[in-house]
Computed example of a mutant assay.
Amino acid sequence: MTLVAKLLILAIAGQVLLTIIILVLMGRERVPRVMSGEIPLQDIAVERTAYPLKARLLSNNFDNQFQLPVLFYVAALLALWAGITGWPIVIAAWAFVVLRYVHAAIHITTNRVHQRLAVYATGLAVLVILWLLVLFPILLA
């Protein structure tokens, strides 16, 4: 396996790690509140509004990790499958992952929506570039 293929796999692992980190942080915010009885189960059975803001932000961010990143996983796995893992693809993949970490950090701390949107939009643009870098070699082969 080439170095660039390994680096692409590490980018995938980096995105998976972010999802797990957010899940753990969310659990640390939510589980103790439910276990102590501070938040009754029936209050969270259908919606999250009973949780404090920090827990809701983490929960929303966790949901975000199953939106754009799903398209990232597909593109990265398609690149690996097709054997087209060059430096541009690896750089785009890592740029996307780094932007997801920045997005998550903004989301679960200050939650400045304009900053978060700018990082999200940049990540989306990088994801589009990644898809183009993966699709063109496959379709033109």
Rank of each mutant, 00 (worst) to 15 (best):
A75H: 03
R56L: 13
A141C: 05
L135F: 13
E38V: 14
L3E: 02
V24S: 07
K6G: 15
A95C: 01
A95P: 01
F66G: 01
L78E: 09
L53H: 13
L25N: 11
M1V: 13
A50P: 14
L71F: 15
G123H: 08
L130N: 03
T122H: 03
L25F: 10
V98T: 04
G123C: 09
A75S: 12
V74R: 14
N64V: 04
A75P: 06
L127P: 02
V113H: 00
L139Y: 08
G83V: 07
N60K: 03
L53K: 13
P137D: 02
P137F: 02
N64L: 06
A93V: 03
W131N: 07
P52H: 12
P69I: 07
P137E: 03
V128P: 00
L17I: 14
G83P: 08
Y73P: 05
E47M: 12
L78A: 13
L68M: 14
V98P: 00
R28P: 07
W81D: 08
A92R: 00
V74H: 13
M26E: 12
A79N: 01
I12M: 05
V16T: 05
T110L: 08
I84D: 04
G14M: 12
A93P: 01
V34H: 01
R30N: 08
M35H: 04
F96P: 09
L133Y: 01
Q65R: 06
L78P: 04
V46P: 06
P88V: 05
A121I: 14
I39N: 04
K6W: 15
A13V: 13
H103E: 10
G86R: 11
V74A: 15
Y51T: 10
L117N: 01
A50D: 15
L8G: 12
L130M: 06
L41E: 06
M26R: 12
I108C: 08
A11I: 03
V46C: 09
I12K: 03
L25I: 10
V97P: 06
I129G: 07
L8C: 13
L53C: 10
L10C: 00
V134F: 00
L57N: 11
V126T: 12
H114V: 02
V128M: 05
I20R: 06
V34A: 04
W131D: 04
R33H: 09
L78T: 14
I12Y: 00
A121P: 02
T110N: 07
F62Q: 12
W131C: 06
D43T: 10
T122M: 05
T85K: 08
T19W: 03
I20W: 07
W131Q: 03
L124Q: 11
P69L: 06
T122I: 01
R112W: 05
H114K: 04
W94N: 10
L68Y: 10
V4E: 13
R116Q: 07
I89N: 07
V46F: 13
T19S: 11
A95L: 02
N61D: 15
Y101H: 15
F136S: 05
A13P: 09
L25E: 10
